[in-house]
């Protein structure tokens, strides 16, 4: 089973457009959208949802108002400033927990002297299994202002793997999140390969270095490709050189193409529209297939 994860460090470099194109070119893969925070892949692959599952991520402290004696132990113990005092004068304070700040650690639950704090599981979003024109897709939606994105990413990957095994598919293509933190680490650890899609800007170069340091840290082989390379060809060369020094293999360049936005509007991947950059993506894919064997 091979699993290729497309990431970028910097956001907005074209990860999702490249991933959708790969999904179409591969034909026989399972696709997973691990950018659960801002999932866009569905806008290009237009999945038909077959299954929906609720995602519970940890727990949430909830004060039972009638039982609260207003002692303030929860306030004193909480490190996340999640306890709000709704004072109506001295001795009358009733405390509540701000769900947006609650980390789900359970310290207040434990130290409430009258056990007035419940600790239910917390609904943080949902994940879905869908059909698309290029096979099965697993994707998710993180609840508004909900945490635990790393955990949801792990579930999406696990399900994609389960489906691939069940369907006898040997490839999983993953659209990863931006950055280098929790959801990215959850997306890349244990993957066969990472493809870093970057852009020829000072920010793209800077973030590429950080993301390749991460793949080196977790010992995941990396490919790199500069998108919109012709915006600044000098920078593209610099980035490719830097990527090489950081053990990434360059798998091609993708040119700037206004058709990308048009394809998005038409709900199509780049390789399904007549476009110059679609041809570039095809060449990148061929190179990857060749190296993967």
């Amino acid at each position: 089973m091979k699993e290729i994860v497309v990431i970028s460090g910097k956001g907005g470099t074209g990860k999702t457009s490249v991933t959708a194109s790969f999904a179409v070119l591969a034909g026989k893969a399972v696709v997973a959208d691990c950018d659960v925070d801002a999932a866009d892949l569905y806008l290009l692959l237009m999945p038909t949802v077959k299954e929906r599952h609720q995602f519970y991520g940890g727990n949430l402290a909830v004060v039972r108002k009638d039982d609260c004696i207003g002692c303030g132990a929860c306030l004193a113990h909480c490190r996340f400033n999640a306890v709000i005092m709704n004072g109506r004068g001295a001795g009358e304070a009733v405390f509540t927990i701000d769900p947006l700040s609650c980390e789900g650690c359970g310290v207040c639950v434990r130290f409430c002297p009258v056990k007035a704090i419940d600790f239910p599981e917390r609904l943080c979003g949902e994940w879905m299994v869908s059909d698309t024109r290029c096979g099965s897709m697993v994707h998710a939606r993180l609840g508004i202002a909900a945490g635990n994105s790393g955990k949801l990413v792990s579930i999406v990957r696990r399900e994609a793997r389960r489906i691939a095994e069940a369907e006898g598919k040997s490839l999983i293509i993953v659209d990863g999140p931006p950055g280098i933190g929790c959801p990215v680490i959850a997306s890349v650890t244990g993957a066969t390969h990472v493809l870093v899609v970057t852009e020829p800007t000072v920010s793209g170069a800077h973030d590429l270095e950080r993301v390749l340091s991460l793949t080196n840290h977790f010992k995941i082989p990396a490919w790199a490709c500069v998108n919109k390379w012709d915006i600044n060809s000098e920078m593209t060369e610099k980035i490719e050189e830097k990527a090489g020094q950081l053990n990434a293999r360059i798998v091609g360049r993708i040119r700037y193409d206004r058709m990308v936005t048009m394809a998005q509007i038409n709900e199509r991947s780049m390789v399904e529209t007549e476009s110059a950059c679609g041809e570039d993506i095809k060449r990148v894919w061929e190179k990857i297939v060749l190296q993967e064997g």
């Binding site: 801002a38 931006p178 950055g179």
Partner: peptide, 14 residues
């Protein structure tokens, strides 16, 4: 702020 809508963004925008 960082991109997205999860924990790091909440910590920033709050």
């Amino acid at each position: 702020a960082p991109p997205g809508t999860s924990c790091p963004v909440l910590a920033t925008v709050r």
